[in-house]
Amino acid sequence: MSVKLEALLQMAPGEILAHNERPTGEQLRHKKQTYFEDVAVGDELPKYIYSPTPTHLFRWSAAIENFHRIHYDLDFGLNHDRNPSLLVHGSWKQSVVPQYLKDWTLPGGWPWKARFEHRAMLVPGDVLIMWGTVTGKQEKGGMGLVDLEIGMKTQDGIESMPGAATVVLPLRDGPPIPYPFVPPQD
């Protein structure tokens, strides 16, 4: 049973990690469709929990060819930029967002759009919780539009990426969501 965000934030960091709901490849392969009719305002999405290490940060820097030293050169970060430690990339956080929305809408929905801000400096050792809550829903053009509040909180409850998203879920007896995606017309 999924643990509510508020309850997670009452736990010790090690205990939070035990409630990670990031799906495995096999779970994504066999993911059952969530339909528009299945969700209600106030529903919480699964929580993706991360505990980035310097090695995770280095791997991300290398993967996207981001050479900013604050992410892998601790001496530079501490003594030049006066940061508290190496810093978790904003680019990594914002790349988790479409993954999170994709996973929830698979296999037939669509992770249409998101907006968010980067706040707070995240460092290795932080426990990070990617979360989402349904804030609204409407049917439009044969599609189920679902509005979400999203974010990535630290173990201390600090919101590092407040944002919102709109995803599309199929109606239980509706047509398939078009691919490539075409937004419903007003």
């Binding site: 998101a114 968010f116 801000e117 995606f181």
Partner: peptide
């Protein structure tokens, strides 16, 4: 930085 948006098609 004032924020980011992403649209996927």
């Amino acid at each position: 930085n004032a924020g980011n948006e992403l649209e996927i098609y």
